[in-house]
Design a protein around this nucleic acid. Structure first.
Length: 507
RNA sequence: GGUGGUGUAGCCAAGUGGUUGAAGGCGGUGCUCUGCAAAAGCACUAUCCGUGAGUUCGAAUCUCACCAUCACCUCCA
């Protein structure tokens, strides 16, 4: 097995991936805070790591993929300014129990992950299900001297930690001295000894809806803590890969490292991976409303699927969107637009149709393999090399389109199957299938079967195409064209080829 | 103000020192196929990679400056 190289955000370079335990790779990805619907930017991130998960498995690794649900502790404002946490705020606004809020948006999140064909993680732990463990970690950090209690809240002592361990700031590239001599006017420093300190346990106010008993009184855990705790619990105090959006690098991930290190004394993660943002109109997609316009710069998946958004000329299916995401590298920003989606849609259908053609290609058994054979094998090898190189999906995809070209040429007769060996055709079928379905996680929306009554539809279409064929044999162009045109109105496209006609649903 | 990115054809987007590859998708042009189309195939479609200077035998790729733009530094994948 050729090695995978991963760009490690911690060291800012590509490194060969060597799992700590060769038998089981630990992968942790920051999941959503379930206080609102996921937007498309969230979906990109989870899709990127779905590809990582799938590719690791394709390479033969057994993977434990942990992705949390944050359903407590995520603050709207600053910890000690008396701000509510996101769950409480939404619960109050919707007149629901916090658990109802969490459940509603967790269900929505799961549904969206399924729509995008993202595999479920191995474990999906919730913050509220791990309060005991979180309290334990706060205790550990306290007893190690890296936290202090003030009136029922516990703060991580960033300054002390930073001075004693040469760790803080490494992930986010922050200059420690600058941070410590922070001159920026920060409001609400309040109980904290230093602005860089952060809450790991927060005292419940009178109106706080989510609250648990603790040695420091009733309260709730700070954001960041749940990830430290749950990754440690399920993957160990040192594990392989931690992923998340670039916007989590600081403070979330930096503080996560600090907590783990402050509690266990070890660096928790070997490879940090950060996916870059999905842009809309050249700006980061975000739920937070713009203070000037009051509108949030985001698009919801459902708007995409229905076409109900002013930037869209039409509806786009989930797989078109997934394909669109694959066309960019996960570490690059990706700019969403109607034009880009229209282009992706065409490309997606071309890829799927090529696969259908490929499946039907039959080798006659006679072959004189020439450079075509070599070229096709090289393309397949390169596709894997591209994925080995930090999961370069756009590059891998470009190789697949090289293969699409070959496949179509076999079909149209520009290339003869005898120019490749039976073995090569067999491999091509397998590699192509593995890549588009197992690794890229695409579903074939062009197939009748995906629409329900597949078999009946296939039979019907065969019948219609045969009738048209007869008409064409009789040079009855009127009937032939009528069938073709009426089908087109029904969004079914008939494709005439050398060996008869086939059909697909139009995009 | 601090930090980290990005700037590649009409659009989306790879490539980060080397000889005919500046991928791929979309779009465009021409041809082939076709009863006519569509689909598909073939060919062409950036004398050049934000601007200026430098390093080098050689740079989109390294260095410096400048311009533009984005992200993080409050909450966001």
């Amino acid at each position: 097995m050729t090695p995978i190289h991963i760009y490690n955000s911690l060291n800012r370079k590509k490194e060969e991936f060597k799992p700590i335990n060769p038998d089981l790779v630990g992968l942790y990805v920051c999941g959503p805070t379930v206080y609102s619907d996921v937007h498309l930017g969230n979906c990109r991130s989870f899709t990127s790591f779905d590809i990582v998960y799938r590719y690791l498995m394709y390479k033969g690794y057994r993977v434990r993929y942990v992705r949390n649900i944050t359903d407590a502790g995520h603050l709207v404002g600053d910890a000690d300014s008396g701000a509510e946490d996101k769950m409480t705020k939404t619960a109050r606004a919707l007149k629901l129990e916090p658990m109802e809020v969490a459940h509603r948006y967790t269900v929505g999140f799961h549904k969206m992950m399924e729509v995008f064909n993202n595999l479920p993680p191995s474990i999906e732990p919730r913050a509220t299900g791990h309060i005991t463990e979180q309290i334990k970690m706060v205790k550990d950090i306290l007893s190690n001297g890296y936290a202090y209690e003030v009136d029922g809240s516990v703060y991580f002592d960033t300054v002390k930690f930073a001075k004693e361990k040469d760790v803080y700031g490494r992930l986010s590239g922050r200059n420690l001295d600058d941070m410590l001599t922070e001159s920026r006017e920060l409001k609400n420093q309040g109980e904290k000894k230093h602005p860089a300190d952060f809450a790991i346990w927060i005292k419940a106010e009178e109106n706080t809806l989510q609250r648990w008993d603790s040695p420091w009184g009733e309260g709730f855990p700070g954001w960041h803590l749940e990830c430290s705790v749950m990754s440690t619990k399920y993957l160990g105090s040192e594990f392989d890969i931690h992923g998340g959006g670039e916007d989590l690098r600081f403070p979330h991930h930096e503080n996560e490292i600090a907590q783990n290190c402050g509690a266990c004394g070890t660096m928790p993660v070997k490879y940090w991976m950060h996916g870059d943002m999905l842009l809309l109109n050249g700006r980061k997609m975000s739920k937070t409303p713009d203070p000037e316009t009051g509108k949030s710069n985001s698009i919801m998946p459902d708007e995409l699927f229905s076409g109900e958004n002013e930037i869209l000329s039409k509806a786009f299916s989930p797989m078109v969107v997934r394909f669109f995401m694959l066309q960019a590298h996960y570490r690059s920003t990706l700019d969403l637009s109607d034009n880009a989606l229209l282009a992706a849609e065409k490309g997606y259908y071309r890829l799927m149709e090529a696969n259908t053609i490929l499946e039907e290609l039959q080798h006659e058994g006679i072959s004189n393999p020439n450079n075509e054979d070599e070229e096709i094998n090289a393309l397949m090898d390169q596709t894997i090399e591209d994925m080995d190189d930090d999961f370069n999906t756009p590059k891998a995809l470009s190789r697949l389109f090289g293969l699409v070209n070959k496949i179509n040429s076999f079909k149209s007769g520009h290339l003869d199957l005898s120019s490749i060996s039976e073995e090569t055709l067999k491999r091509l079928k397998k590699v192509f299938h593995d890549f588009i379905f197992d690794i890229f996680g695409l579903l074939d929306e062009t197939r009748a079967a995906s629409n329900g009554n597949g078999e009946a539809l296939d039979g019907l279409m065969e019948l219609i195409i045969n009738i048209r064929k007869e008409a064409r044999n009789n040079k009855d162009w009127g009937t032939s064209d009528q069938i073709r045109d009426k089908l087109k109105e029904l969004k079914i496209q008939v494709k005439d080829g050398k060996e008869g006609s086939s059909w697909v649903f139009e995009k």
